[in-house]
């Protein structure tokens, strides 16, 4: 019997029979706590899976993957669900509107309820930073389910950063020593945070740009250097990652005068794109707001790798799901190991 004292949270007893049921999965809650070596392994495995996808073994057969989305999503959820299916898992989709969330169930209770059904993995997106950490604690209080963060508010979106690096490496060989630009509403962007962390861990030079109201100086502490002149960033970059303005996270008066004004100073239009180095290319995590941060001729032009990013999303998430279930190259690890702090 081991009792975790969660302070104001209720004390949770983890029963010893839970611990004896075997090895628990791996959460993936953020890039911040992921080692560079682990990132490289995930990228290597994603490449293997992508190149052998037709003959990849259904290593997650018999496993259930629940996608629990408290926030709208097109590509992330579809990508996770396809990745899970390709690995042979069955997929259960739970969204806030079709679940007990709409009846007022808390994230804590939803986590415990789903974990009690003993799925292998819960993939969660939530509008609040840290909500997937809360979910992971709830899940740990019941069983061994792994939690994967599919985006928690403005905090992190680890699988997006993995698929972005997969894409960058496809074009650049390696990101080490390369200059990667991130331009837009970085303050509210989980994609930016995860990319800043991941790219810095892999030795890339990260340049950050955008209006001061959406790119505060404190962002440099996460990784990268702010340059206020966007044209200068674009001239230096090997790849330019454009981010949309996260209107849904803005409170109070608009932080810039108008969309047109924003587009004029920060938008990637054809003339600004012409400043890019000859082999440089344009990325966007989506969804795009055409005519604001990126103009259609750039989004659909020859330098855009947006569709490639989306394709890579499936492979990156397959690797993450395997790791979560300790399958594939992660199989040998953790057999017989204890769960660490939860069940030690």
């Amino acid at each position: 019997m081991h009792v975790r004292d969660l302070g104001c949270f209720r004390s949770v007893a983890v029963r010893s029979d839970d611990a004896s049921r075997g090895v628990a999965g791996h959460h993936l809650l953020d890039i911040e706590t992921l080692e560079a070596s682990e990132i490289r392994r995930l990228l290597d495995r994603a490449r293997e899976l992508r190149d052998t996808v037709s003959q990849s073994a259904p290593v997650l057969a018999g496993t259930s993957v629940i996608t629990l989305f408290y926030e709208a999503s097109t590509r992330t959820r579809a990508s996770f669900e396809i990745a899970a299916q390709r690995l042979g898992a069955s997929v259960i989709t739970v969204t806030s509107s079709n679940s007990s969330v709409s009846k007022g169930e808390s994230t804590w209770d939803t986590g415990r309820t789903l974990a009690a059904m003993d799925p292998g993995v819960i993939v969660c997106r939530h509008p609040h930073p840290g909500a997937t950490h809360l979910l992971a604690r709830a899940v740990e209080s019941v069983g061994r389910t792994a939690v994967i963060n599919a985006g928690d508010g403005a905090h992190e979106h680890p699988t997006q950063a993995l698929l972005d690096s997969l894409t960058l490496c496809d074009r650049l060989g390696s990101v080490e020593g390369r200059t990667i630009a991130i331009i837009g509403d970085i303050a509210h962007s989980r994609v930016a945070r995860s990319n800043q962390l991941l790219l810095t861990k892999l030795g890339a030079r990260v340049l950050l740009g955008g209006p001061r109201s959406l790119v505060p100086a404190s962002l440099e502490a996460i990784g990268g250097t702010i340059i206020r002149d966007v044209d200068e960033i674009i001239r230096q970059a090997d790849a330019v990652m454009m981010l949309r303005v996260q209107f849904e996270r803005l409170v109070g008066p608009p932080p810039f005068p108008s969309l047109a004004d924003y587009n004029r100073t920060y938008g990637l239009n054809a003339s600004r794109a012409s400043l890019m180095k000859p082999d440089a290319f344009v990325m966007h995590p989506g969804p795009m707001n055409r005519g604001i941060e990126i103009d259609p001729e750039v989004a659909d032009g020859p330098t855009s790798v947006v569709a490639h990013q989306v394709r890579n999303g499936i492979a990156a998430r397959m690797a993450v799901l395997e790791r979560a279930m300790r399958k594939g190259p992660w199989q040998s690890q953790g057999q017989g190991q204890s769960r660490g702090q939860e069940m030690s």
Binding site: P129, G153, A154, H155, A187, R193, P216, L219, R249, G252
Partner: peptide, 16 residues
């Protein structure tokens, strides 16, 4: 909209 002090920690945690 703020939920903690605005500074390095809030920026890293993505909290307003």
């Amino acid at each position: 909209g703020g939920v903690m002090h605005e500074g390095l920690v809030s920026t890293r945690l993505g909290l307003a």
